[in-house]
């Protein structure tokens, strides 16, 4: 499926849905009763989740709860044993060109940046655009723009080993955005960073979400990071569980729009 332009649906509208009487944004990603095991270990056990266009969803939960596996399914890096993962209503299992989906529809940010060590920052961003219709000049220019957007224009010629953890992660975000994906998938992007670097990275995601309405699914077990999301779902033992009560005194609004997900907590 070809990439479609990002919608500019405000995050608040997208996440509040029918609660304020407006028509909710359609789901862009859906996980429907998904089961996935590694050998005898069930990583996901009947997981269901829906993400609307323009929404920022945080996925929280303890280690080994299946968060990264869920993200891998959304990125089509893994395939469910049972159940469906849908993008714009189409089952990913029926897609013939999943590499195209990974290249154009979703952008992936890993916990450990996973940059190519011998390439500089610009080349690491450009590498995601190799094989697209963009010319060499256009790829070069876009990489520069993206690095500028994550405040790394001055470090375009540096290799990952010459950058801090936060800078590497911002390069990884720039790479994930290279092909203007509809959804940004991030697997604990601040998990290996110090608080200051983590705050910088979260700030980049926040800017993207607010200014461009980028749909974000972010796995994190950092409560502070999760507060930046529109809502947070909790994954435990491969299932979505009710989220703990929010720290603020505001009443939870999840019941109104949480049809696909058993339970979730609203933030922001």
């Amino acid at each position: 499926m070809p990439s479609t332009p990002r919608t500019s649906v405000p995050a608040a509208l997208a996440s509040s849905g029918a609660a304020d009487g407006r028509v909710p944004a359609p789901p862009i990603l859906e996980v429907v009763d998904v089961h996935l095991s590694y050998g005898t270990v069930a990583a996901l056990d009947g997981t269901t989740l829906s993400v609307r266009e323009g929404e920022w969803v945080g996925v929280s939960g303890p280690s080994g709860s299946g968060k990264s596996t869920l993200l891998g399914l959304l990125a089509a890096l893994e395939h469910p044993d049972r159940g469906e993962v849908r993008f714009r209503g189409a089952d990913l299992a029926r897609k013939r060109r999943l590499d195209r989906y990974r290249r154009l529809d979703v952008g992936l940010v890993f916990q450990l940046h996973n940059l190519i060590p011998h390439l500089d920052a610009r080349a690491n961003v450009e590498i995601a655009m190799l094989g697209t219709h963009l010319s060499r000049t256009a790829r070069h220019r876009r990489a520069g723009e993206l690095l500028d957007a994550v405040d790394l224009a001055s470090l375009a010629g540096r290799r990952p080993a010459e950058m801090s953890g936060g800078e590497r992660q911002r390069v990884a975000i720039a790479r994930a955005l290279a092909n203007r994906p509809a959804v940004l998938l991030a697997d604990e992007p601040t998990g290996s960073l110090d608080p200051a670097s983590a705050a910088n990275v979260v700030d980049v995601f926040t800017r993207l979400h607010r200014s461009e309405g980028t749909t974000i699914v972010m796995v994190t077990h950092d409560a502070a990071v999760a507060t930046a999301a529109d809502r947070v779902v909790v994954l435990e033992a491969g299932r979505i569980h009710p989220a703990p009560p929010p720290p603020a005194a505001t009443a939870p609004a999840s019941a109104a729009d949480a049809a696909p997900a058993p339970a979730e907590r609203r933030t922001g």
Binding site: F110, I127, A128, L130, G131
Partner: peptide, 16 residues
């Protein structure tokens, strides 16, 4: 392998 996995994850095709 991990590098190739990353390339596949960011959308590189098998052919590429």
């Amino acid at each position: 392998i991990r590098e190739f996995g990353v390339l596949r994850a960011i959308g590189w095709s098998r052919r590429r």
